[in-house]
Design a binder for these strands. Structure first.
Lengths: 340, 340
DNA sequence: CTGAAAGCGCTTACAG
DNA sequence: CTGAAAGCGCTTACAG
C-alpha cells in the first residue's frame, strides 16, 4: 500500500504492455473487451488511479476550471455575497457533471489576478464572478481577451468586447418587481444602490425600475436614489440617509437583497413599519431573503441554471466552438415585505 | 503570443542552459545573482510561467489542497450552510498565503468521496468540512486513515481515531451562552437540535447547556428538547413542535444559528414575542445572525483562525510532522434576542 | 556557479 | 488488437 502504483505495475500484473493499460483505462475502442475488463479489475483492486499531472502534461489539458471570485475590498471577509455562494455551489456541481475539477480563488479587484491560471496550465479556462467597480474590471477583461485566455463571466452584457457572459435580465427584473409593487398601491419609490456605469447590473435594475414607474404614470423622484454597494451595511447607511432626507416615499427598492435587508434594519430602527408604511423589495433571492422580517419580495436569479450555462459555455470556448452571451429571465418572488 | 513558452525558450533568449533557467526561477542559491535577475526579467517579459503539471510530475507534489464539503442530502442546494461558506473563504485565503491552490468539491455524505484526490495526485491533502450523520462519517474517516491519506477535519474531537481535527469548544460555548441567559432571568430552557452521538457537536453544546442549568440550580426539562438538523426549516419545525407540546419555556437554544432563526420564524408566526416572552439564542455567529429580528445572541466561532489552523496542520501532516487536534474557544456575542 | 542528462508517469502516433 | 518508443516540460543529482 505504500509506494504509489503506476501503469507499469498494472501492466505487469495483467500481463500486457503499459500502452494497453493506458488504453484500457481510457475505454479506448482499440483494446479487446476482455483485456479491458481484466485491466480495469486489477486497477481497481490495487486502487490505481491515473496520475493527473502526468496525463495533463501529456495531453496538454488540465481538465480543471478555475473560479475567480472577486470583490471590492470594502467587503467584510466573512460576508461573501451569499448570491455568489449559491453560484459557487452550482458551478461546482456543473463541473463535476462534466468531469472537471474546480480551483477556487478569491481575489480583490485591485489585485493582478488576470493572468496565472491558464499560463501555468492549472486550468483550461476561467469563470469570473464578482462585483466591483466596472472600470477596473473592464480593463482586466481586455487583458484576458488579449492573452487569449478562455473565460466566461457572470454579469451584464459587455458592449464592445467579445466577452461571453451569462447574466440575468436586470432591466426586466427591475421592471417586473416595481410594477408588482405599483399594483400594491405604492406611488413614491426610493432606490438604494449605485446607478453609475461603474455597476451596470444595478444601473439596469434601476432603469427597469424607472421605466415601470413611467409606464404607470408615476414620477421618478431622483432625490430618493442613494448609492450603495452590495452589502447589508451599505444598505443600512443608504436607508438612513434616505429617511433623514425628509423625502416622502412608500416603497424602497434595494438594488440587491443585501441592500434591502440593510434598509429593513434601518426602517425598523426608526420604527417605520414594513410593509404598512413602506414596502421593501430586493433583487437576487438569496437564501436569507425568505427569513427576514418581514420576508423579502425579490427577483429570483436561477443560480443552478446560471452555473450550468457558465460551465457549458466555457467548455465550448475551450473546445474552440463559438459561444454566445446569454441573458436569463428572473422570476418575481412575492413575500410579505410589500404587502399582500 | 500563440505558442506556449517553455523554459527552453527562456534559456535561449538568456543565453544560458535550461537548467539554469529552472534554478533562477526557483530562486536557487546555486545561481549567480545577476544571471537570476536576467532570467527572471526575460521570463516576465515573455509572460512565461512554470508549467504546473510538469513541475508537479517531477517533484511529486501538487501544491494543491482539496476541500471536501459534504452535507446531508436533506439540505437544499442553495442553502449551503453559511458557516461553511465563511470557512471556505478563510481556507482559500490561508491556502493562498502558503502558496497552495485549493480544489473545491461538494459531496453528499452518502457518496464514495473518500478516495480520489490524493491517489490521482490532484492534491497533497484534504480538508474535510461538513455535517452529517456521524456514523457514516466515522467509517469514511477510518478509510482515509487506512489509505494513509493526509487530511484534517473541522469538528469535534474523534475519540479513538488518530484524526487531526480543528473544532471549537462546543461544551463551553453552550455553557457560556446558557449561563448568560440565566443571568437574564430565564429559568425554563428548551433546546432544538439533535443530541445523539450522530451529531457530536450538537451533543456537546447540549451538554454544556444542561451543565449550566444544573450549576445554577435549574431543572433540565427533557421534554423541551426536539431534534433538528442544521437548517432553518428544521429549526422552524422543531419550534412548532415545541410550542404545540404545551410545555412551558422562556428561552430556546438553537443548536446552530440556522435552527435558532427557524425558531424565530415559528415564534413570530405564533405571535410569541422575542425576547419579551421567550429568549432565543443560537451558535456559530453566521453573517445573517446580526440581521435577524431581533438580532441573534450566539457563540462566535472564529472562522478566520479556523481556516488557518486547518491549513497549517494539514501542511504539517504533509511534511511528515506531527500535528495536534486543537479546540478553539468561542466568544459570546450578545445581541437583542435574549433581552438586555 | 553552470550544463548535459535522466526521469517523473502518462498518451499516442507508428509499426506490426 | 497490441507493443516499443517518443515526448509532454519540468527538477535535480552528477560532473565539471
Amino acid at each position: 500500500m505504500k509506494a504509489k502504483q503506476t501503469s507499469f505495475d498494472i501492466a505487469y500484473r495483467a500481463g500486457v504492455s503499459q500502452s494497453t493499460v493506458s488504453r484500457a483505462l481510457r475505454d479506448s475502442p482499440l483494446v479487446n473487451e476482455e483485456t479491458r475488463k481484466r485491466v480495469q479489475a486489477i486497477a481497481k483492486e490495487l486502487n490505481y488511479k491515473v496520475d493527473k499531472h502526468a496525463s495533463s502534461l501529456r495531453t496538454q489539458q488540465s481538465k480543471t476550471l478555475a473560479l475567480l471570485l472577486f470583490e471590492d475590498p470594502t467587503n467584510d471577509d466573512s460576508l461573501i455575497n451569499p448570491f455568489f455562494m449559491s453560484m459557487l455551489g452550482s458551478i461546482t456541481r456543473a463541473c463535476g457533471v462534466k468531469g472537471y475539477d474546480l480551483l477556487v480563488s478569491f481575489q480583490e479587484m485591485a489585485n493582478d489576478w488576470h493572468a496565472d491560471f491558464e499560463d501555468t496550465r492549472k486550468a483550461d479556462g476561467i469563470i469570473l464572478l464578482g462585483y466591483g467597480d466596472y472600470t477596473d474590471y473592464e480593463e482586466k477583461l481586455i487583458q484576458l481577451t488579449n492573452q487569449e485566455t478562455h473565460f466566461v463571466r457572470w454579469g451584464a452584457d459587455v458592449k464592445g468586447l467579445p466577452v461571453v457572459s451569462v447574466g440575468c435580465d436586470n432591466f426586466h427584473g427591475g421592471y417586473q418587481l416595481t410594477e408588482h409593487v405599483i399594483k400594491n398601491k405604492r406611488t413614491s419609490f426610493a432606490f438604494l444602490g449605485g446607478v453609475s456605469s461603474g455597476s451596470p447590473e444595478f444601473l439596469e435594475r434601476y432603469l427597469g425600475h424607472c421605466k415601470a414607474q413611467y409606464d404607470h404614470n408615476l414620477t421618478v423622484n431622483k432625490k430618493c436614489q442613494f448609492d450603495a454597494v452590495s452589502t447589508e451595511e451599505a444598505g443600512y447607511q443608504a436607508a438612513i440617509k434616505l429617511i433623514d432626507s425628509g423625502e416622502t416615499f412608500d416603497a424602497i427598492m434595494g438594488a440587491s437583497d443585501l441592500i434591502a435587508i440593510g434598509a429593513l434594519r434601518a426602517l425598523q430602527e426608526r420604527k417605520i413599519n414594513v410593509p404598512a408604511d413602506v414596502a421593501v423589495f430586493g433583487f437576487d433571492d438569496i437564501p436569507i431573503a425568505s427569513f427576514t422580517f418581514p420576508a423579502l419580495t425579490t427577483a429570483k436569479q436561477d443560480t443552478i441554471r446560471a452555473g450550468e450555462l457558465l460551465v457549458d459555455k466555457l467548455l465550448q470556448l475551450i473546445k474552440g466552438e463559438p459561444a454566445q452571451t446569454e441573458l436569463m429571465a428572473t422570476t418575481l418572488v412575492v413575500r410579505k415585505s410589500c404587502g399582500s
